[in-house]
Design a protein around this nucleic acid. Sequence first.
DNA 1: ACAAAAGTGTTCGATATACACCCATGT
DNA 2: ACATGGGTGTATATCGAACACTTTTGT
Lengths: 224, 224
Amino acid sequence: MERSAVRVTVDIVIFSIREDALQVLLIRRKYDPFRGRWAIPGGFVLDRESLEQAALRELREETGVEDVYLEQLYSFGDPDRDPRGRVITVAYFALISSAQALRPGTDAEEAQWFPFSKLPPLAFDHRKILEYALVRLRNKLEYTTVGFQLLPEKFSLSDLQRVYEVILDKKLDKRNFRRKMDLLGILRPLREWRRQGVSRPARLYRFSAHRFERLRDKGILFPF
Amino acid sequence: MERSAVRVTVDIVIFSIREDALQVLLIRRKYDPFRGRWAIPGGFVLDRESLEQAALRELREETGVEDVYLEQLYSFGDPDRDPRGRVITVAYFALISSAQALRPGTDAEEAQWFPFSKLPPLAFDHRKILEYALVRLRNKLEYTTVGFQLLPEKFSLSDLQRVYEVILDKKLDKRNFRRKMDLLGILRPLREWRRQGVSRPARLYRFSAHRFERLRDKGILFPF
DNA sequence: ACAAAAGTGTTCGATATACACCCATGT
DNA sequence: ACATGGGTGTATATCGAACACTTTTGT
């Protein structure tokens, strides 16, 4: 068998809802190739770590956050995707709660949130990766509970609906949305309300993980 | 940045319906590690080929078939998954029509179909890969048209139903199944019938690709 | 009183499920 | 005539989509 002179990276599409928009975290490249361009955070897989560990490490280095939803997206391996040589990347996507503050630019890299609808020119094939990540996120939103990963622990139903609306990029009907969430049976209402400026206070809810497990057991979700 | 001393393979889970069962093609390893064990066909990615090209090449080498449904499954990169060192594999799955004959054991490798329900002990983490492939195949079956890829060009509705039944491992109602297929609007009835032994001849159908494209455009499918 | 967001039910069409008998053919 | 698989319709339950007004609060 032939040896393959290949290097492997992980790249992580980091989504968050900020300022009522779906945003992704990008870093500005300091070196060639694509110096000055924006890129998805990532880096080489180290010798003794799994792909997921590598993704978590990069995520920690880039943002300082630890507890996030992380899912493998797809592997991209066009021979010409990196001008430096043969580099295959395993792309992940991560969801960060809008409450989580990032430790800014830890390894002296310029990092910045961009609304998905206003992406700058990107390095490598990162535009393609981002677009596929959005497709997956939208699909997952419809048949799983990933949406909750983008919210803080306590949230109102309007918060939740806004998450769905900005990701799917369409208005949803409030009554239908609430009924659906209610039927899912994974929301625990709290005895807490939150005043949002000048109007009626909104009841807060918590995502009920253990009811969610039953859904998982019914095979609605995925094994990794 | 650190170099990663990694090699990359593609492995292909090859599904087919044979003898009214879902089967996978395995090859017997001739060399260590895991000499004598059965394994999913695969091999190293070459310098100038994409991941998909590598998968297609392995598929051709292993089976002689060219026109198949091929989809990337998942990348597996546990540091200890291969005793020879760091090998990351990008797993694909392929669907082969039951009509397609394989060029047998071309590169002097012993290849054999195994019913999914009677898998032998497998090399590496290939058992895990196979199990995930089945989960994906089942999911895809429900919201896409991959099922047709397992049939020859002309098929009866009973043939089609059998595909669904053996993959999902449950009996389906004939009338409901036919109505659903009819509503999908992707079957073209032919003026041809086939006698199956001693009973009434079954009408044959053809999968209508161009109607299918409309479904694809509606975003029901995936980009790769 | 009014502005702003929270909250709440009903109707309708589409889709999924359950269920049983007749038909065409070869032996 | 019978054994074998092919073919067909109806009734019910469930789910998603459309749609408008009242409530609570701060100013």
